[in-house]
Design a protein around this nucleic acid. Structure first.
Lengths: 244, 244
DNA sequence: AAGTGGTCTAGACCACCAC
DNA sequence: TGGTGGTCTAGACCACTTT
């Protein structure tokens, strides 16, 4: 037995998917089918299907079956110079640029005043105990959660401004920061990818997540906002312009 | 039984790891240990350990045990304006900027002339049948593969230049392109994350990979190079500057 | 030689979903 | 209600690593 049975079964299914035998949304042969076809025990058939779900090619639905995963067109998130400025400078939310044709909605929104995590407090130059304005929200596309985000701003800086409301007004947070004389002139984004922790999975995101920390900086080098984002990796393509 | 046994066992181990009971590189209780401690069957203990390995918290070594994964300091890959220009403008490889103290070596290098994949050919404005110069290489840090990359350049453009050699000389490919009068002035990078396919796993990369496509563009808007990179997600942090 | 994880079998009960 | 995947048991053999 050169390669394990379950891997051979998985490979056969994978090839069938790639060949189009099973299209997106189609039901794959279930555990019982595989047991019969390949003369194999329950756990072995399960293991084969487990390979496909781990690869993100299939997803199982309790009581229904295992289905080929439908990959919707990924969202193109352009983190590009002109775009950002133009967009929030002219009334739209920065985030509407993330998106190109489907319905994006916001969910689980909250604003509160609370201490920021130590690393964030450091970036924002908050003294220990200084509170931050914390804005949390989750974004859905077609009813499916694709991103959750938390932003931190110095509470003293934004007190009394629309930033402490759910609706920050035309142009969003960045436009309001500009109104306050703290317009960000550039942002630094750090990007990592990881498997979703159980916590993130509770948020309803996929198995692989992209973690972005966006740090917004003013002309005087002041950090006025830190945003931590968790994206469903399968739902997004990030685009960056790199001048040379 | 509110939550499954294997999840409770996995949670206990996870907490023990976070609490420092088991440090990086330490051996976790094995299948036999868990069977005894939790009065559970083999497959259940396995399943619990499987959760941790799937999360990337642990890794199993055949015949030896399951160990807490040692996460080396991630490589900071700065895809930033000044850096890129400065670096290759002054003799160093662009990629040496990826890296900040450990030994990075190249592996499995090859240069060849071959047709580019259709999407790449389109970006490079290659007529069907026009060959591309294909440069493949894999990067190791401390002996561990962390990235593999393939670059495509129009063969007609680079014929006879050092770009067709392994050693492209001071400043690397971009400096040679500049010598040829095709200096790239900016690049567009698209970033995705995914679980590693069996192919990529054969390359020796981790379970989660980051896929970057870098398109290098000249002042006359000509695409002179397309590079596809596969990074071990755990080994990298990407940094981008976004002017606003 | 002893112990480890990797694979595999042949059963079982359950919650859930579709019909 | 019958079929599905999710969980679980109690065994087994193997290749591999460590001692």
């Amino acid at each position: 037995m050169a390669t394990p049975k379950y891997q051979r079964i998985a490979a056969a299914l994978r090839n069938a998917i790639r060949a189009g035998t099973y299209g997106p949304g189609d039901r794959l042969p279930g555990e019982n089918d595989l047991m019969a076809q390949h003369e194999v025990a329950r756990m072995t058939a399960r293991q084969a299907l487990g390979v496909l779900t781990a690869e993100g090619l299939a997803e199982s639905r309790k009581g229904a079956g295992v289905f080929v995963r439908a990959h919707p067109e990924p969202i193109l998130r352009r983190a590009t110079a002109r775009l950002a400025r133009q967009v929030w400078g002219s009334g739209e939310s920065v985030w509407s640029a993330d998106f190109d044709g489907r319905m994006m909605t916001v969910d689980r929104f909250s604003v509160s005043e609370a201490p920021a995590p130590p690393d964030v407090a450091g970036l924002l130059s908050l003294a220990p105990g200084d509170p931050a304005c914390v804005r949390r929200r989750r974004y859905l596309v077609g009813g499916v959660p694709v991103m959750s985000a938390v932003s931190y701003l110095p509470a003293a800086l934004v007190a009394g401004s629309p930033i402490t409301n759910e609706d920050t007004g035309p142009g969003g947070t960045y436009a309001r920061l500009a109104d306050l004389g703290h317009a960000p002139v550039h942002a630094r984004e750090t990007v990592r990818a990881d498997t979703a922790t159980p916590d993130a999975r509770d948020l309803g995101l996929g198995a692989v997540v992209v973690l972005i920390r966006r740090v917004a900086i003013t002309a005087t080098d002041r950090v006025v906002e830190v945003t931590d984002m968790v994206l469903d990796a399968g739902a997004y393509v990030l685009e960056y312009e790199v001048p040379m």
